[in-house]
Design a protein around this nucleic acid. Structure first.
Lengths: 208, 208, 208, 208
DNA sequence: AATGAATGAGGTTTCATTCAT
DNA sequence: TATGAATGAAACCTCATTCAT
C-alpha cells in the first residue's frame, strides 16, 4: 500500500534527521557536550522518541559514521575498479578520494576520527564496535586492492600493499588531526597546503 | 635545613605519583572513565588531597602531558643543536626521536593525542589550553629549526620547512592513531612496520 | 483535551509540593542543612526530579518566598485601595496585614527574613536577586501608597511617607527577628505582646 | 617572669588578631564564604594554628561577637548608672548608645545579627549558644533597668519595661536589617534618616 | 508512534578539622 | 608552639535512559 510506504519513508526520513541532528550538534559542541536533549531539539523530536530509532546515544553516532564511511567506501570501490584499467596518477586519484571524503562532510569525518580512538572504541558495546569495524574493513579492503594494483602496475615501489595502504591513509588522518588541533588552539591552519606537500612527498617516496 | 628539603622532596614525589597514577588510570580506562577517586586510590591518597596538588582533573592531565612533552622538546633541542654540525641521516635521527618519545611513555603519548583533539581543547580553561600550546609551540620551534637546517644543508628538498615539519610529525601521529585504533578493535597492529615504511617513503620523498 | 489539563494540573501540584517540602525542611533544619535530598524525600520525588522544576536549590526558595510575598502584596494592595475611602485606624489595619502575612505562613516569613540578609543576597545569582527585589518592590510601593494616603488624610504626622513605610515595616521585622532568636535560645518569647505594644507606641508616635 | 608575661601577651595578641581577621573576612564575604583558610591568611597564621586558639570556626565568631557585645553592655551599664540621677532625654541617650554600638564596629554588629538567627543558633553547640545567651542577657538586663528607670521617672508611659526594652531594641535591629538588605540589593539605603524618624516616633509614642 | 515526566548513577569540588613533625 | 599535609563528609548538579500515557 501507498500508506505503508509513506510511513516507511517518513520513518526513514526521521532517522536521517536524527543522524543529521547529532552531527550538527557534534560540530558545535563535541561528542561529550552533545546531549540527547540537544539532538532531540535539533531533530524536532522529543528525547524519548530518539530511543524509538536508536538504542543509545552511541548508536546514533556509530550509524552516522558508518553511513558516511559507506560513501567513502563507494569512492574507493570506484577507484579500485577504475584503476584496473590504468594506474597512472593512482596516488593523486586516491588522495583526491580522501579529500572528497573529508570535504563531503568534515563534521562526520571528525566524528569518525573521534570514535576511532582507543578510549572511545573500548567502551563501545561490542556490537557497535563491530559495526564500525565492518565499515572500516570494507574501506580497508578496497584500499589494499588499490595499492596492490599500484604495486603490481609498477606505480608504487615493491612493498607490502597493506602496509602501504595504511601508511598513506594514516598520513591523511594525521594531517587532519593536527590541523584540527591547531584550529582549536586558535592558530592558523594549513590543511590544504600540507595536503599538497604530502601528496608530492608521498608521490616521490612511494615511486619504485 | 634538611627537614625542609625532605618535605619538598616528598611533596614533589607525591605530585609525580599523582601524575603517574592519572596516566595509569588513563591507560586502563581512558580519560572519561578516569575519576578523581580512581586516581586517588592509585596514588594512595584521598580524593581531597589531589586538590591540594592540582586544581582540577584536567590540570592533572595537562601537567602530565606537558611534562612528557618537555622531554620530547629536550630530544628535539638536542637534535637541533647536533644537526648544525652535520645533517646526514637527519630524517632518520628525527624519526628516532619521535619513536623515543613514543616509547618512553606510550600512555602519556596517547593522552597527549587525546587532549589535542578539538573537542577536548575547546572546553579546556584557557589557562590550561595555553599551557598545552606553549609546550607544543616549543617543540614545534625546534622541529622547524631542524627542518630548516635540513633544507639548507640540502638534505631535504626545497620547501617551506614549517610545512615539512608539520607534515613529518603528522605522519608519525597518524600512524600511532591508526594503530591504536586497530588494537582497540582487536586487530593486529603493525606500529613498527608502518613506521619503517614511513621512514623509507619519507626519506625518499623529502630528498631534494 | 482534559488530558493536557490534568497533566498541567499535576505538574503545578508537584511544583507546589516541592515548594512546600522545601519550606517544611527549612523549618526543621534551616536553610543550609536543607539538602536537595531532604526536599526530594519530603516531596516524594527523586533528587533529579527537583531539577526538572527548578534549576537550583536557591531557585526553589526564592520561588517559595516570592509566592508568599505575592500574597502579602495582595493584602497591601487591598488595603491601599480600601484606605482611599477612609483612613481611620489605618495603622491598625496595616499592622493586621503584617500579622496576617506572618501568621499565614511563619515558616516562609522566616525564610524571607533569612534570604534578605546581605550575605545571602550577595551570592544569589542576579536573576534570582532581581526576582526577590521585584516582589519586594511591589510590596514597598503599596506600602508607600498607603502611608501617603495616611499622611495626606492627616492620620499620620507630616513626614516622608517612604521613610515612614520602611520604619513601620522594619519595626515589625525586628520584632520577629528578636523573638525568633529568643525562641532558638530556649527562652520564652512574647511575639504577640510586643506586637501589641509596638502598635500602641507606633500609633501614638506617628500621629500628627 | 617577664618571659611568661610576654608569652601571655603575645598569645592574647594573636587571639585578637584571629578575631579581627574573622570579622574582616566576614565583612567581605559573609559567614559561609569565610573559610578557616581565609581567616588564617589574614591573621598571618596557618590554618592549623587557629585551632590552638579556638576549637571551631563557630567559636571564633561567637567570641568575636561576645567581645563586641561586651562593649555594648558597658555602654548600657554606663547609661543605666547615669540615668539614676536624671532621666531626661533618656530615649535619645539610649538611641545614641545603640548607634554608638553599631558604629563602633558595623561588621561585628552584622555578624551578631547573623548569629542570632534561629537557623544559626540552632545548630550551634549548646556551649556556644550559652555564651551568646549570657552576653545577650547581660545587655538585656541593663536595658530593662534603664527602661524601668524611665518608666518610674515618668519619662516613658506605664508599661512592662521589659517589653518596652525589647521593642525599642528590635526597632533598631529591624532598621539595620532592612537597610543592609537594601544595600545588598543595590538600592540606596537611608540608615541615618530612618534612625532619626524612628527616634522621633518612639519618643512621642513612648511618652506617658 | 510519540512524549512528558521521572530517576539512578555518578562526578567534581569544597572545607572544617585532625595529625605528625 | 606552629604548621604542612591529609582527609571524610557532603552537596550540588547533569544526563542517558526508562516508563506510563
Amino acid at each position: 500500500m501507498g500508506i505503508q510506504e509513506r510511513r516507511a519513508r517518513e520513518k526513514e526520513g526521521r532517522r536521517e534527521a536524527i543522524l543529521r541532528a547529532a552531527i550538527e550538534a557534534y560540530v558545535e559542541e563535541g561528542y561529550h557536550a552533545t546531549t540527547m536533549e540537544k539532538i532531540a531539539e535539533r531533530a524536532e523530536l522529543s528525547r524519548a522518541t530518539l530511543y524509538l530509532y536508536f538504542k543509545t546515544k552511541d548508536e546514533i553516532f556509530v550509524h552516522a559514521i558508518t553511513a558516511h564511511s559507506g560513501y567513502f567506501g563507494d569512492l574507493l570501490e570506484d577507484l579500485s575498479v577504475r584503476c584496473r584499467s590504468g594506474a597512472q596518477d593512482l596516488l593523486t586519484r586516491l588522495w583526491d578520494a580522501f579529500q572528497a571524503f573529508y570535504r563531503s562532510d568534515p563534521a562526520t569525518f571528525n566524528a569518525t576520527l573521534y570514535f576511532h580512538q582507543e578510549e572511545i572504541l573500548r567502551r563501545l558495546p561490542p556490537e557497535l564496535r563491530r559495526l564500525l569495524d565492518r565499515s572500516g574493513t570494507r574501506n580497508y579492503r578496497f584500499l589494499c586492492a588499490i595499492m596492490e594494483q599500484g604495486v603490481r602496475a609498477g606505480v608504487f615501489r615493491q612493498c607490502d600493499p597493506r602496509t602501504l595502504a595504511e601508511f598513506v591513509w594514516t598520513t591523511f588522518l594525521g594531517i587532519v588531526h593536527l590541523e584540527n588541533s591547531k584550529r582549536a588552539m586558535g592558530r592558523k591552519n594549513h590543511l590544504e597546503t600540507t595536503w599538497e606537500l604530502a601528496l608530492e612527498v608521498l608521490g616521490k617516496g612511494t615511486a619504485p
